[in-house]
Design a protein around this nucleic acid. Structure first.
Length: 271
DNA sequence: ATCGCCTCCTGCGCGC
DNA sequence: TGCGCGCAGGAGGCGA
């Protein structure tokens, strides 16, 4: 489900609901996630008050006085509030029960997500310390992308999805941003000109901003915290549109698997 | 240091 | 209707 816009949507939806709430109890039904949930995680956050909530890359961060709860939604994770009377279903792995009789519930069928307790300086944590800049920040510029891509012999699409280069760009938005920038996904990172780098960075920013504005992209059954369907499949210009007409030149959209990931592009528009 | 491949896991849609 | 197969929004780890 989640790339940056989806995670951002979840954070924005949940933050006002969670700030100031106190954790009553925590139920961990399935600790086997991407990294196992530590046995003492419940006691770390019980009786503590949620101070704030934020996002770094595709990680959700819930801050308490003594540390931070870090959550990643993986491919299929969801984090949402339910009434405490709603009984858990098959993939509802963690319930954080709040003092207002609501439950912050973590559901993740594929279990590629994670939930970790970080004490102290979070940016030193191994999952966070090597992350690249936020795509919507002022540090992410055409000059930056141009510089960091020199001598890099990886195809540009894979390069964009490398979280050490820039965070938050997943498979859908990598496809979309390359289409907007008219850059072929199989180009080597090193081959981009400065001008193309500028255009690509602008494309990434505008694609992500539009998706955030719409509340994330809905594929299959994803709904955000308010149960709004969000940015829809119809807004995507290339992703999932194999053999359909390019919105720009009417040529048919190509499909290719690049590094095990579905890639869609217009071979006429994207050079 | 960089790159490519494999892996974790379940659900779903498709073809037979 | 049921079965087997391949694929799905992520990303760390390993060997070359």
């Amino acid at each position: 489900m989640p790339e940056l816009p989806e995670v951002e949507t979840v954070v924005r939806g949940l933050t006002p609901q969670l700030i100031g709430k106190k954790v009553s109890t925590v139920h961990v039904r399935q600790p086997k996630l991407r990294w196992p949930i530590e046995k003492d995680l419940p006691q770390k956050i019980c009786k503590q008050t949620i101070l704030s909530m934020s996002r770094r890359a595709k990680y959700l961060l819930i801050e308490f006085k003594t540390g931070t709860l870090l959550i990643h939604l993986g491919m299929s994770g969801r984090l949402y509030l339910v009434d405490y009377t709603k009984s858990p279903e098959k993939h509802d792995h963690v319930d954080v029960v709040l003092n207002d009789k609501r439950i912050l519930r973590f559901t993740d069928p594929r279990r590629f997500g994670c939930m970790l307790w970080l004490a102290g300086e979070i940016n030193e944590h191994f999952l966070l310390k090597n992350l690249g800049p936020e795509p919507l920040s002022k540090e992410f510029t055409g000059d930056y992308l141009f510089g960091i891509s020199r001598k890099r012999q990886v195809v540009i699409k894979t390069f964009l999805m490398n979280q050490q280069i820039v965070v938050g760009v997943g498979n859908i938005y990598a496809n979309e941003a390359l289409f907007f920038a008219k850059i072929h996904p199989l180009r080597l990172a090193d081959s981009l000109t400065k001008q193309e780098s500028q255009l690509l960075v602008q494309s990434i920013k505008s694609v992500l901003k539009a998706a955030i504005k719409a509340g994330g992209t809905t594929l299959r059954d994803f709904v955000n915290g308010d149960a709004k369907p969000g940015y829809c499949k119809q807004s995507l210009k290339v992703y999932g549109r194999e053999n359909l007409a390019c919105v720009c030149c009417k040529n048919s959209i190509q499909f290719e698997r690049i590094h095990q990931r579905s890639t869609f592009f217009c071979s006429q528009c994207q050079q």
